[in-house]
Amino acid sequence: MANLIKFKIDGRECMAEAGTYIVEAARQNGIFIPTLCNMKGLHPKGACRICTVRINGRLMTSCTTPVTDGIEIESESADITELRKSIIELLFVSGNHFCPSCEKSGNCELQALGYLYQMMVPRYPYDFPLKDVDASSPKIIKDQNRCILCKRCIKSIKDENGRSFFAFHSRGNHLEVVLDEELAANMTDELAELAMNNCPVGSILVKEKGFATPIGKRKFDNQPIGSEIEG
């Protein structure tokens, strides 16, 4: 490996190739930093801020910040954990996240982060926005109630010509991720499955696939999110 550098996360000595984004460098060193908009293999954009860390007294998103030689990163201090928890709570109140009736429950990253930070109740009032469910395409359901606008689907689900199946539509409070009708008509099963799995919440669902895994055997039923990294 070329150009290995040393740095510290919460006082722990770590090593990674220079220029690696902090989230990935942490992962390589067995340290979990939560992400929602970021995903391995996608270009980071630092939108959800859940991966916020403190470097030299400044709060930065660790998915967009590369490691440099000798930096000291603060990730799990009490105030950063509290900040991350408040982001999760804001996401819960700004959409309609009815976990008991959600097909993604147990496999949902937003919910798993709620568990990780022991969110018993959000500190903010629920918004209950009126949102649509688009079930018009043959393979998938796009439920706007649960969408957190992370853009993972837009960036990762593309056809052979590089065209995205999903796109942002409208702006501000009305911003939503919509599915391209024409492209969706010819979506393969594999791509539909990938879209559902890449979605950190239950906003993209493959039709007739809900509740396939029984309670107790789902991804985050017994193991907290990040435990596969921290071991």
């Binding site: 009815f98 976990c99 008991p100 009736s101 018993m120 109740v121 959000p122 629920y126 926005p129 009126l130």
Partner: peptide, 19 residues
């Protein structure tokens, strides 16, 4: 004590919220 999702966030009855 608020016990359960309905007490905490309205739960399934709250699906009508907004309508």
């Amino acid at each position: 004590i608020s016990l359960g999702e309905c007490a905490i966030m309205g739960g399934l009855p709250a699906l009508r919220n907004g309508i």
